[in-house]
Design a protein around this nucleic acid. Structure first.
Lengths: 126, 126
DNA sequence: AAATTTATTGCAATTAAGTTGCATTAACAA
DNA sequence: TTGTTAATGCAACTTAATTGCAATAAATTT
């Protein structure tokens, strides 16, 4: 893959992710960029950025799709197996930089694993 | 909560889960019981059975809702933090009885964690 | 056993995240 | 500057899941 054309849409979306380090849900981006970018475009650009290894995606407990900036992903391989933490109070989601080792399971081959942690974030804990 | 009335719907749905030990998706149950039970009823009974601590639910990577029989859940507390394994080949999903310890995260309180593992199951590995 | 209460069910309509088809626009290479 | 084709916008669609409401039927009361 690789980004083929540098368009305003791609820049606009990337800016949203560089603004702060947290994950952003697809619908949130659609709402946030309403009037600026079309819903379809948002979904398609996000998809492409994920293909390119720039963003990675995951679903929260409600099945809502979230995206976050990748650290060491390539378009070949996504290292998105770190846990994602969702605050039950403020809704914020971010990537947690701890290693969780998934134990081997007899007779099964593990391809991907996804860990979603929900609780209270550092801002809401007090 | 607790089941208030013992209706055929509840029995029909529970039978599906006792038939074999794997998890079943909500839509799969809706399809499987088409003509026998209404879609709305399926969703509502599943919801109630989860409330009662008889089933627990989780979402797969596509955002589809799955249910599985609980082992030691009560209507107060769901011990659903064991991983769920979904076969990328046959689609089967089941509960994995291994303990995955989620490390404590500084300044955050963990309430629930959900682990979804995808790969090849014991039937499809050969 | 009949009447009463109200949880449960079925049906149709709705919701909402995400997708698709297609005509139009605009990167960017030649 | 022209031609190619990726990217975009719009409208319509898809699909899992939910909601409102009237009808039905457990289970309790009389």
């Amino acid at each position: 893959m690789g980004i083929i054309r540098k368009t305003p849409s791609i820049e606009v979306l990337l800016t949203e992710f560089t603004r702060n380090g947290t994950a952003i849900s697809a619908i949130e981006l659609v709402k946030r960029l309403d009037g600026k970018l079309n819903k379809t475009t948002v979904y398609r650009v996000l998809d492409k950025l994920e293909d390119d290894g720039i963003l990675h995606s995951f679903l929260d407990k409600k099945g809502i799709k979230w995206y976050a900036k990748c650290n060491s992903c390539t378009h070949d391989k996504h290292f998105d197996s770190h846990p994602h933490f969702q605050c039950l109070n403020c809704g914020k989601v971010d990537c947690v930089t701890v290693d969780v080792s998934i134990p081997k399971i007899p007779n099964r081959e593990i391809v991907i694993s996804q860990i979603l942690i929900q609780g209270t974030c550092e801002n809401c804990i007090n």
